[in-house]
Computed example of a mutant assay.
Amino acid sequence: MLAALATLTALLLAFHRLVPNSPGHLGSLLESFLPWYGLMIAVLLGLALLRRSVLALAALTLPVAAWTYLFGGLLLPGAKPGAHDLVVVQHNVSDENTDPAGTVRALADAEPDLIGLEELVPAALPIYERTLAPRYRYRAVVGTVGLWSKYPLTDVQQLHIKPAGITEPWSRGLRAVIHTQHREIAVYVAHLPSVRVHPSGLALSWRDESAGLLGKAIATDKSHTVILLGDLNSTADDRGLNPLTSQMNVPARGFAFSFPAAFPLARIDQIMARSATVGPIRALPATGSDHLPVIARITLG
């Protein structure tokens, strides 16, 4: 039985893309928690040692190899900072945040070059703007998302990523161009629709539709280098983000689980880049949000 469970775990890790997404978006659910299969491997290892089962121990080499192939690189140290690097922070600040000033001070103290924020409600927006203004001269806010930068910003545009089924006012994406001393970079800030849990399974259609619209916008962007900051309500392993992960680099180092802040289980806050390398990524200490901020260094090359 232990050997069979070890083999099944290895198969799920190695061939998770073959798990059907219906009914209930089972494939996306599995992929959202793939790193945690390491805990299952640890439990099986303990049981195999307790039973002194040579067969089970031999079978466990399969899931260990699969997990190491998928996630082992995230545990390695990152390269040394380079002269052309950017430090960026991504954070869903929560529309119920009771300490917006303290939240943005904590983000600014990390000294990033760019800060992407989501769930900017009108009542708290002046606090974010006032608190960040001394260190970040340039900012762009569209709907409930915003970008603060140490570099000049131009060509600020609203992103049209609203799913067709949403009829109420909804603006959760922007694109802007930052002008660094090395090059111009298109920066996207986006907040994809939330995932809902129903008795029939996960409701992902709006999120997947919005991800597709965002992916098309980035695919047609003529800028050489593109950076995406956002609460994408999905992990980088989830097939629902294929329109983005198929054309952008994801963090090369670090897990940085960001949600929920009280007990982080997954990183749904993403930093991605095209024609640049992202990594390492790590989570910052908790703020007044139900998400943890994530920070990463982007090497432009």
Rank of each mutant, 00 (worst) to 15 (best):
G46I: 14
Q270H: 02
G146W: 06
D99F: 08
P20T: 04
N233D: 08
D231A: 05
S22Q: 13
G102F: 04
L75W: 10
R183I: 01
P100L: 06
E168N: 11
V177K: 12
G102L: 03
L70D: 01
A190Q: 03
L26Q: 00
P100N: 07
G116C: 07
R175S: 13
D269A: 08
A101W: 00
R130F: 02
R172F: 00
Q270I: 04
A133T: 09
I161P: 06
L153G: 07
A123D: 12
L125Q: 12
A3H: 12
R196T: 04
N97Q: 09
A48F: 07
S223R: 15
P251E: 01
K222R: 15
L107W: 08
W206A: 10
L62T: 06
A211S: 08
I185S: 12
F255N: 04
R139H: 15
M248E: 03
H160F: 10
G279C: 09
L214C: 03
T131Y: 02
V195Q: 04
I185W: 07
A236K: 07
L117G: 04
G165W: 02
S223K: 13
D237W: 08
I271V: 15
S258Q: 06
V121A: 11
R267Q: 12
D95R: 11
A211D: 01
G27Q: 13
V64H: 00
P193A: 04
A262K: 10
P260F: 02
S275L: 00
I295N: 00
E168Y: 10
G301A: 14
